[in-house]
């Protein structure tokens, strides 16, 4: 009835990005405070239910006191929340979402989402992305890469499998071909809607090598559940090697076929 690999976990999954510890710290502080408020409040609630239950000879009291004092919890909550916003909310948000590491020192990737796949477009060793054009989109060229653009020559396109190096930030510039999707890796503690007609950004600096799952977090149709992929965080050496082999493979296919064909679904 419950399969072997199903579990009853609580808490957060493994953290694997540079800013994940900040977000986890905030998450934990919030939950400790929430549980604290709930327990204090709950104890008083139960005390009231017992102490003021109806019974013979006990009547309600008409006059009540402490109307002004009842604003104290409201004030405390307001002060606590404003402190959180100023001390952590705005700074953490700014560092994760409002600023991006310098592209020149980062690994840059374009993500082009579609129903129901993640197209991952790497600039290759030259660091330049080839031009894309919606008119060139076809079954064999899912992102409409213009192979006549010199910058496209060493570009790599994979589907659903993203390789990134450890030790430097990766910047994703994302757009969608059709409906809204959402790029989400739970271990990185970050997600971002991927919207047709817009470019949105998401950056992360992985702190661990390994495989992390990409899921689509915005309902995008029938295959929404299956719109998954993996981020493979590799050591810089492994990453370079992977990149070289991809470029070589692309060149090989191109010469073998005598025509331009993009690489597909390799990882």
């Amino acid at each position: 009835m419950i399969k072997e690999d199903w579990g009853f976990q609580t808490g957060l999954p493994e953290a694997a990005s540079s800013y994940a510890p900040n977000i986890d710290w905030l998450m934990n502080v919030l939950h400790v405070v929430m549980i604290g408020i709930f327990v204090v409040w709950g104890v008083y609630f139960i005390y009231c239910l017992v102490a003021y239950r109806a019974r013979d000879g006990h009547t309600g009291t008409y006059h009540q006191t402490g109307e002004k004092a009842s604003f104290i919890p409201d004030g405390l909550i307001l002060a606590f929340e404003m402190w959180l916003i100023l001390a952590f909310g705005i700074p953490i948000w700014a560092s994760v979402k409002q600023s991006t590491p310098p592209p020149s020192e980062s690994n840059n990737i374009h993500v082009i989402a579609q129903q129901f796949a993640w197209n991952i477009h790497y600039p290759g060793p030259d660091g330049k992305f080839g031009r894309r054009d919606v008119k060139l989109v076809s079954a064999s060229n899912s992102i409409g890469l213009d192979e006549s653009d010199p910058a496209s020559k060493d570009d790599i396109v994979t589907i659903n499998q993203m390789s990134v190096p450890l030790g430097k930030p990766t910047i994703l510039q994302m757009t969608s071909k059709d409906v809204i999707h959402d790029f989400w890796v739970s271990n990185f503690r970050n997600k971002q809607d991927v919207v047709p007609g817009l470019n949105t950004n998401l950056w992360f600096e992985p702190t661990k090598t390994g495989k992390f799952e990409i899921a689509c977090a915005q309902l995008c149709g029938l295959g929404h559940t299956q719109m998954v992929g993996n981020v493979f965080v590799k050591t810089p050496e492994e990453f370079d090697e992977w990149q070289k082999s991809q470029v070589a493979e692309k060149a090989g296919t191109a010469s073998a076929a005598g025509a331009v064909a993009p690489s597909e679904n390799r990882s």
């Binding site: 957060l12 900040n22 977000i23 905030l26 998450m27 919030l30 939950h31 929430m34 408020i37 709930f38 929340e81 959180l84 916003i85 952590f88 909310g89 953490i92 948000w93 994760v96 979402k97 959402d182 989400w184 739970s186 503690r189 970050n190 997600k191 977090a217 915005q218």
Partner: peptide
């Protein structure tokens, strides 16, 4: 109370749409 980490943008990064 559970609205708190959702209304708070940095934690919403993780919890949004879950």
């Amino acid at each position: 109370l559970t609205g708190l980490p959702l209304g708070f943008a940095p934690t919403d990064l993780h919890l949004h749409d879950t």
